[in-house]
Amino acid sequence: MKYRSAFDIIGPVMIGPSSSHTAGAARIGRVARTLFEKQPAKAVISLYGSFAKTYKGHGTDLALVAGIMDFDTFDERIPEALEIARQVGLEVEFITEDAVTEHPNTVKINLFDGEGKELEIVGISIGGGTIEITEINSFKLKLSGAHPAILVVHQDRFGLISAVTSVLSKYEINIGHMEVSRKERGDEAVMVIEMDHKIDDGVFAELNFLQGVTQVIRLVD
């Protein structure tokens, strides 16, 4: 991969011994929390590869749970994340998997609110605190978490992608990266759009109002 600056190699300001195993893990957890849009009641965290082998020694377990509770990479509460989770009623289960994945630092996070809402994401920590989200609810995609982004859940139908991008164009919002994923033709689909700037409440409301759009979630860096 190409690094944009020395800080991509050194890593972010963080609590923990490893940018990939700690800071990256916290960021994956925080993306999951943002997508879930609320504090979950339960988190099932499945670890693969290097994560599965070293997660306790490198504090990956603490970082993932801290991110799920919306702590940043430098939050001084990270070392107490498991105890804090217990105090706030967040049930956490860790599973170490033997399956071989494309990247050694891979984690699958399943979140539940106890009232029927569920979310599943798969993320990888690729070094220097940099991450990629590769699946959301079985939709294959690529989300870096490094730029302002929106996730648009919509019906797979003609003209909807154009409608979304037209709204962004109207407000002079430049798209840096965009992917669309669907499970079946005409079924539910997901757009992931990374942008140069955050969108304000007016743009957010206009996107939500588009016919065929069922949900818009803002992800900020």
Rank of each mutant, 00 (worst) to 15 (best):
E80K: 09
H154C: 15
R218N: 00
Y55H: 15
S166D: 10
V92L: 12
D72N: 14
I78Q: 05
G59Y: 02
A205D: 12
K170T: 14
G176Y: 15
P148K: 06
K108G: 00
I78K: 04
I84E: 10
I199Y: 09
I217T: 13
D201Y: 11
V65G: 03
V203G: 01
I161P: 08
L219F: 07
A85S: 12
S144E: 02
K117Q: 14
A41G: 08
Y55M: 08
Q39F: 08
D156Y: 12
E93F: 06
L90E: 07
V167K: 07
A25G: 01
G67I: 05
I131M: 05
Q215M: 07
I15V: 15
V13A: 15
I121V: 09
A146L: 13
I161R: 12
D196A: 06
P12C: 13
I217V: 14
K42M: 13
S18M: 05
A32Q: 06
F112P: 10
V100L: 04
K2N: 14
M191C: 05
E184R: 13
I78M: 12
S169T: 01
K56M: 13
L143T: 07
F51H: 09
M195C: 03
K38V: 07
K170V: 11
L151E: 10
D70V: 11
A23M: 05
L111V: 04
K53Q: 12
G212S: 09
V31R: 08
L210R: 06
E120S: 14
S5I: 14
T134I: 15
F209V: 13
I173F: 04
V65D: 00
F51E: 05
A205V: 01
A41H: 06
K38M: 09
V152M: 08
M195G: 01
V65P: 00
V213P: 01
G16Y: 06
